[in-house]
Amino acid sequence: MREYTDKIRQIARRLLEEGKVDRVIGFKKGSMPMMNEPCVIRRPQDADQLIWDGNCGINLANYLTGAKDKVGVVAKGCDSRNIVTHIIENKLDRDNVVVIGVPCQAMIDKRKIAAAVDGEISEVTETDDGKVVVRGNGFEKTFDRAETLQDNCAICVHRNPVICDEPVADPVPEQTDVDRYADIRAIDAMSDAERKAFFDDMFAECIRCYACRNACPLCYCPTCFVDESRPQWVGKGQDENDIRTFHFLRAYHCAGRCTDCGACERACPVGIKMRVLTRKLEKDCKELYGWEAGMSVDQRPPLDAYKPNDPDAFIK
């Protein structure tokens, strides 16, 4: 990861020095174990604040929405696909963004690690030979990095940026034999009652803070339907129907757009696994339209283009 960090700093410094960009968006070291903070660098001499490691799971495309200046952005595979989506949706001009592309080695999941140890973690380090060493008060535990990945990263098949102006390293091999939808098929196979119970349980702890929505680069509506009060589409309290309506509708708004970057699950303070909703729609888009979000700036997404051969078997 050291090489990645060095290269990112070098590129950022050069872009700023040459005046190619007004600012660079990346990550700086956080104040907590397994936390980095998205940051903006405006002067070449500040480029050394930038870092890269397995704790850069926040999707930086979220900070580009509507940008009008020249921006450099550090982007892993999923971020780059959200940048593409921004471009397709006219939220960003391709000419205004310089993608500093990071061939991604997948992000580590702070919750998984916290759950695997007893006691408070004081330090987490990643080694060059693919281990994660976790230290805390009176314990030290080593994990295989592969066991500690965020759920979405473990099944990711697009780790290399799809658009890239300044590569940080050579492409990494993509995973091929992953089953992205095992859990989705299991939910599909449930009876109505089982599925209702599954969702009841899944959302029981949601506090409607909307961190999942706000961490998502796709959720850029000026006023979200859940916030609207005239008309009040959804109740504002803790009623389970309202909570579920929020989650289902948000997922639909992300259909054909979600890149499964996992920022939503990562941001949720209570650990709700809402990606099953977006992945169900991802699966449908793939099966019905052969579509994967954010792969090319030249193709219109299935939900905003009509084709005579669109599947319509569900219409009587």
Binding site: C39, N62, Y63, C209
Partner: peptide
């Protein structure tokens, strides 16, 4: 800069 205004 980094705040996503989530309210958490």
């Amino acid at each position: 800069f980094s705040c996503i205004n989530c309210g958490t």
